[in-house]
Amino acid sequence: MKKVFVFFLILLFFNACAIKNQNNFSQSIAITINSPFLKMSDFGFLIKENQALNLEVYHLGQAFFNLKIKDKICLNAVCYDKRVFNKKFFKNEYYDDILSDILNAKPLWQGKKIQKTTDGFKQNLKAKNYEIFYEVSKNKIIFFDKVSRIKIILNYQG
């Protein structure tokens, strides 16, 4: 019985000292955003940390754009409710997690009108307040809303 107790004690010790999987992921990207709110084309990093998504964009080696998505969307340390941010940035309310879905290369509106391609998918979505073309491939994401004139292009590097 004493050996079993010592074994479990040692097992507990090594488990406590083990490095936990943080679900962290970082990808270098070239990003272009063209909207009435923001225009830029530069390089940066898309960082996924547990439940947060962080987009850091650099210009001349300096971080000048930091977008963090968790329960709110924070742009350069100013935080907004997701719907308020969407209205300001996209000029449309859409749904709360549309920007997160774009950055995570997930289908919009739970895959509505999705068309599979050889290395990803496309969606063409129309409603009275938007006309969206969205394409995800192995190395590229394109989001374009013809009505609000919003364009987001992400090119994965390396």
Rank of each mutant, 00 (worst) to 15 (best):
K126E: 15
T32Q: 09
I98R: 06
V78R: 03
C74D: 02
T32F: 07
S100V: 03
V136W: 03
N66L: 00
F8C: 14
Q22E: 14
K138F: 06
D81F: 08
D71Q: 05
Q51W: 02
D145E: 10
A127Q: 14
I31C: 05
N129Y: 10
D71G: 04
F37W: 04
K72N: 05
C79S: 06
K116Y: 12
T118A: 15
N124R: 12
A127E: 12
I69S: 04
I141C: 08
L11Y: 07
F144D: 06
L67M: 04
I98C: 08
F13T: 14
A63E: 08
I98T: 07
V57Q: 01
Y95P: 01
F43T: 09
L103P: 00
Y94F: 11
A127H: 13
S26M: 14
R83H: 15
N34E: 05
S148I: 04
F14W: 11
K82E: 03
L125P: 02
Q157R: 10
I31K: 01
A52Q: 11
F5Y: 14
S35Y: 04
G158V: 11
D119G: 11
C79G: 08
A105C: 09
I69G: 02
K88A: 05
A63W: 04
Q123E: 08
E56K: 11
K126Y: 12
K128P: 01
K106V: 02
N76D: 08
D42T: 03
V136G: 02
C17K: 15
Q123I: 03
T118S: 15
F133N: 08
T32D: 04
K113M: 09
I98V: 10
V4Y: 14
S137Y: 02
E56F: 06
T118M: 13
Q27C: 10
V147H: 14
K126G: 08
N66C: 06
Q157Y: 08
F13H: 13
Q115N: 12
Y80F: 15
K116C: 11
I47E: 08
I98N: 00
I33S: 03
A77S: 12
I33G: 02
N139A: 13
V6Y: 14
C74T: 05
N50H: 13
M40S: 03
L99Y: 01
S148N: 10
E131W: 00
T117H: 11
G111Q: 10
G111F: 06
F8K: 13
G158W: 03
N124G: 07
L108W: 02
Y80V: 00
A127W: 07
F133S: 14
A30L: 08
M40Q: 09
K126C: 07
A77Y: 02
G111W: 03
F43Y: 15
K72I: 02
F8G: 07
I47P: 00
N92H: 11
Q110E: 10
Y58A: 13
I10W: 10
I47M: 05
D97W: 05
V84L: 12
L9W: 09
E56T: 04
N54W: 00
H59Y: 15
S28F: 11
D145L: 00
K140G: 01
G61T: 10
N124P: 04
I153Q: 14
Y156V: 05
Y134S: 00
N76W: 02
N50D: 12
